[in-house]
């Protein structure tokens, strides 16, 4: 079986984005730390578990972005993935998921993957578009928000359980090749083993540059970025932890909550 896991490298949640001068996008300074999108890490783990069940399975990783995303790909190889592909794309403005999915689908075309796994969305932008769009462009079925999956090698299918609204679930069968976007909670991602860390040192990440021109498309754009408005009063309590605690108690007491 040939599996591809699409991962995104995201900035640490506590890093502070700085809006650019044109107010059309935001970036991070050199102190920001980046990690693998949590949902995608679950997808990597799921791929590795399938490989443990089905012999001769190959797990590839692909990620789109600037030079720094190589470290995220390497981390996946340290977790146990076989090969890494870096679709080099350095941008400091909005890149539509329509374009991202186009580039990744283009990469997939001659690779004949049986299964493509992604996270259900990214932690930072939470669009959840790239996965289903890749599937649509490749003409394969997809399922989003999957919290359980099982491959049926004889039937060349995958059985998945999707999480629906208000805690309901449904199970369904998709014929392979297919794309599955996993929800967090599907598994506990493993830590890299020492042997895989050693192996990753000698595993080359294949870099792919500029396969598709992206300027020909007119997708949605981000026109303006601003601080999120306050929906409530947002009073900030000041002082030492003890002073803040006393102030909070007083405020809640006045509201008859304590």
């Amino acid at each position: 079986m040939k599996i591809l896991v699409c991962i995104k490298q995201v900035p640490d949640q506590e890093s502070r984005p700085t809006v650019n001068q044109a107010k059309t996008w935001a970036g991070y300074d050199e102190n920001a730390s980046y990690w693998i999108n949590r949902y995608d890490e679950h997808a990597v783990e799921e791929a590795l578990r399938i490989r443990e069940m089905i012999p001769k399975t190959v797990v590839d990783i692909v990620s789109l972005g600037p030079e720094r995303v190589k470290s995220a790909i390497k981390r996946c190889i340290e977790m146990g993935a076989d090969r890494g592909f870096h679709l080099y794309y350095d941008h400091d403005d909005y890149l539509s998921p329509s374009i991202k999915s186009r580039l990744i689908a283009e990469f997939c075309k001659n690779q004949e993957y049986d299964l493509i796994l992604t996270g259900v969305m990214s932690e930072d932008m939470m669009s959840g578009q790239t996965g289903p769009m890749i599937a649509a462009r490749l003409g394969v079925p997809s399922a989003a928000s999957v919290i359980k999956l099982e491959i049926n090698p004889e039937k060349q299918s995958i059985q998945v359980e999707r999480e629906l609204d208000s805690g309901h679930r449904c199970s369904m069968e998709l014929l392979l090749p297919a794309l599955v976007a996993v929800q967090s909670g599907i598994n506990r991602p493993r830590y890299p083993s020492l042997s895989n860390v050693m192996r990753a040192k000698n595993t080359e990440i294949t870099e792919i540059r500029g396969t598709v021109s992206t300027s020909a498309y007119e997708y949605e754009t981000v026109e303006r970025i601003s601080e999120v408005g306050f929906n409530r009063t947002g009073i900030r309590l000041e002082g030492t932890p003890a002073e803040k605690a006393a102030a909070l108690w007083q405020l809640l007491h006045e509201k008859f909550l304590l």
Partner: peptide, 20 residues
């Protein structure tokens, strides 16, 4: 859970933009 499952696919197949 149904909307985000198929909406991006519809956008991709119609060659339109998508905002979720």
């Amino acid at each position: 859970s149904t909307g985000y499952d198929y909406a991006p696919r519809v956008a991709a197949l119609l060659e339109g933009g998508c905002i979720t």
